[in-house]
């Protein structure tokens, strides 16, 4: 019910989820903050498509991987803060290990003489 397949590829979508979750390990954060942080940490290499960021956040919330709460931002504005749930931590661990396995595999293939 309600879970629509995104037009983006599996890998990209999975990666975005993982990046969001990883970012949230630093603590509760609003959507804008998540996007900025990912961009900043990746030295502007990874630019989060905002059009898919919010649907992703909502989907994760629906699945119980993250939770949300309205709060005040640093400049005193009402913002929706997301944070990891216990389920989310588990999910992140799983995706992280998957990712490293995949990255290693790709790296090995690419290093092939």
């Amino acid at each position: 019910m309600g879970k629509e397949k995104q037009p983006v590829g599996e890998l990209v979508q999975g990666t975005l989820d993982m990046l969001i979750l990883k970012t949230l390990t630093r603590g509760p954060m609003h959507g804008y903050g998540i996007a900025s942080l990912i961009q900043q940490v990746s030295d502007e290499v990874l630019r989060v498509e905002e059009g898919s960021l919010y649907p992703a956040l909502h989907r994760l919330e629906l699945d119980g991987i993250i939770d949300s709460e309205w709060g005040l931002s640093s400049n005193n504005r009402r913002a929706k803060y997301y944070r990891l749930t216990a389920l989310g931590r588990k999910q992140l661990a799983k995706e992280a290990s998957n990712w490293s396995r995949l990255a290693h595999a790709i790296a090995r293939v690419m290093e092939m003489a």
């Binding site: 609003h30 959507g31 804008y32 905002e50 931002s73 504005r77 913002a79």
Partner: peptide, 11 residues
């Protein structure tokens, strides 16, 4: 949703 997106745009 409205609020969330407005906040994003303002930031």
């Amino acid at each position: 949703l409205e609020d969330e997106l407005r906040f994003h745009l303002e930031m």
